[in-house]
Design a protein around this nucleic acid. Structure first.
Length: 307
RNA sequence: GGCAUCGUGGCCGAGUGGCUAGGCACAGCUCUGCAAAAGCUUGUACAGCGGUUCGAAUCCGCUCGAUGCCU
């Protein structure tokens, strides 16, 4: 018996990952781990295109709506939880499926991050306040002093990246870069990564259609209920933000919907950029018949056994 | 037909003689715990033709087009 296999299904938003993952799970008689950073949250359903009841029944899913938008849940937490769950699932299955479009989350499970000490969350709050009050230059200067190595290679214009590095520096008293590249986590499983692909116009067309369907399904009401929480991290999400702007009176509904579509397209484009850099991804046409997909998997699987 | 106003890159929009505004979109890209986040890069466009000038998107003329008013 060789190593276990993690079969990853990814691709841009709306391309049909959920459906393919379920068909694969049924074929292999296995279960699905969701690597979708927004489907974790139970308060959001329509706008995050959570699998339907029927879909959830068709194959067991993990990490779907298992958290509240009020919980703090990071990629690091997900990495830990997913690995733990995988270990359990591999007891009974030789192959487990992971679906999702969140590149960072998939990478976390596939390759792992370096380990960092837990940092008091108040440090980040403080850093965000300083960003607001003193501007980004202040953060840049601090990073150049506390971690000149990282300051050389980060995007100094990107406040999120600066704050992450600085919270480690402040919280540990040591440079952030000192924690990087220490050990590459070896995973006890093979991974096969399928990247669903379609011509841009097809992806954009599907997004257009899906947003209309979400609106018809009651996204507006779902978002309205979440207005009191609009500042929460989990709600910095395409489909909700634009409607919050609508509720504030800045967009009329038509504009808001147009913005949702636009931002979804831009998100899909960024997903492409992310996955293009992973050379392990096997391109799969979005409309390939299951038989063809299985053939791609089998071929890859054989190559893997020889590695 | 007459009079008036206007015509700037895919869209919006500043600029009334000289150092290629800017915003948005598109496209490309970055990424080790906020990631459906955050950030970066990229367009010499001035309706057409002719003239004035060392130099015109900016001034003059004609043509075309748009809009408004008048007969």
């Amino acid at each position: 018996m060789g190593k276990k296999t993690l079969l990853v299904v990814t691709g841009p938003t709306g391309i049909g990952k959920t459906s393919l993952a379920i068909r694969l799970a049924q074929h292999y008689g296995t279960e699905i781990i969701s690597a979708d950073s927004r489907q974790f949250y139970r308060e959001m359903r329509i706008g995050t295109a959570v699998p339907t009841e029927d879909e959830l029944k068709a194959a067991p899913h993990h990490f779907i709506q298992h958290k509240s938008i009020h919980d703090a849940y990071s990629v690091g937490d997900f990495e830990r939880d997913a690995l733990e769950r995988l270990e359990e699932l591999f007891q009974d299955h030789d192959l487990v499926i992971m679906v999702g479009g969140s590149g960072l989350y998939i990478d976390a499970v596939l390759f792992g991050f370096d380990t960092f000490p837990d940092i008091d969350p108040s440090i980040r709050v403080q850093l965000n306040r300083e960003l607001r009050d003193k501007g980004i230059e202040s953060l840049q200067r601090e990073l150049m002093v506390s971690d000149p190595v990282y300051a050389e290679k980060v995007d100094l214009q990107n406040p999120h990246r600066l704050i992450r590095a600085l919270e480690i520096c402040r919280g540990t008293g040591k440079p952030y870069s000192g924690y990087l590249g220490r050990k590459k986590n070896r995973r006890p499983f093979h991974s096969i990564i399928l990247g669903l692909e379609a011509p841009r116009e097809v992806v954009y067309g599907r997004i257009e259609k899906r947003v209309d369907e979400m609106m018809a399904a009651g996204l507006l009401e779902e978002a309205r209920d979440l207005v009191p929480f609009q500042e929460l991290n989990a709600l910095q999400t395409v489909g909700y933000r634009e409607l919050f702007t609508h509720f504030s009176g800045e967009y009329d509904l038509e504009q808001a919907v147009r913005e949702i579509k636009k931002n979804s397209r831009r998100y899909a484009k960024r997903q492409g950029t992310w996955f293009r850099r992973n050379r392990e991804v096997l391109p799969v046409p979005h409309d390939a018949p299951l038989k063809e997909v299985l053939a791609i998997i089998t071929r890859r699987s054989k190559e893997k056994q020889h590695e």
